[in-house]
Nucleic acid binder design. Structure first.
Length: 188
DNA sequence: GCGTCGATGGCA
DNA sequence: GCCATCGACGCG
């Protein structure tokens, strides 16, 4: 008999994105949809640290798209890009401070065969869509479990695909678990 | 193995 | 006209 894993609550999310990005490694993302429960261990994240971060969508100001990032932490920011992909982010910090963590890769659990090594692949396999934008991550449909028994080996690198972000493009704000093989392609 | 490129749509 | 992407294709 094992004790059930505890669901992360709002206090966990209301911190700077850089801390949240590191602490989300090793946690378990859960999505319940159409009678199924998809569970995956988070192994790669990126921090987008606020309006001054030129790689962060919030640097464009408060718009219909970026609105949920300006809201309280612990909600999903899901946006559409490249005409094909939905990206899952976890809103960090508090109301008015627009920070978020992009979930880039995970390892499937429960003998579920899936390739979750990339932000687009992950949302597709977990059936996470734009319609999940704004969802409270402490609810019953989309949430994250703590797993105190798992210790990630945390390594940092530059964020992927943000070469336009001037002095922010080389910041070491991508984090991954060096123990995982599911990290998305470029490791450094 | 690596570089290039097209798909496809919302946003500024 | 950009993109916080992916996969297919051409190389050799």
């Amino acid at each position: 008999m094992t004790t059930p894993l505890r669901k992360l609550d709002h206090s966990f999310f209301r911190r700077p994105a850089i801390d949240l990005a590191r602490d989300l490694l090793g946690k378990i993302l859960v999505h319940c949809v159409r009678g199924r429960e998809y569970r995956a261990r988070i192994v790669e994240t990126e921090a987008y640290v606020g309006e001054h971060d030129l790689a962060c969508h919030a640097s464009k100001g408060r718009t219909r798209r970026t609105e949920v990032m300006f809201g309280p932490g612990g909600h999903a920011y899901v946006y559409f890009i490249y005409g094909m992909y939905d990206m899952l982010n976890v809103v960090a910090s508090g109301e008015g401070d627009a920070q978020a963590v992009l979930i880039r890769a995970a390892e499937p659990l429960d003998n579920w065969e899936a390739d979750l090594s990339g932000p687009g692949k992950l949302t597709r396999a977990l059936r996470i869509k734009r319609s999940d934008n704004g969802r409270d991550l402490t609810g019953d449909k989309l949430f994250i479990l703590d797993d105190p028994g798992y210790q990630a080996r945390i390594v940092s690198s530059k964020r992927v695909g943000v070469d336009y972000a001037r002095e922010w493009k080389d910041e070491l704000l991508r984090f991954f678990d060096a123990k995982s093989k599911a990290v998305s392609k470029p490791r450094f």
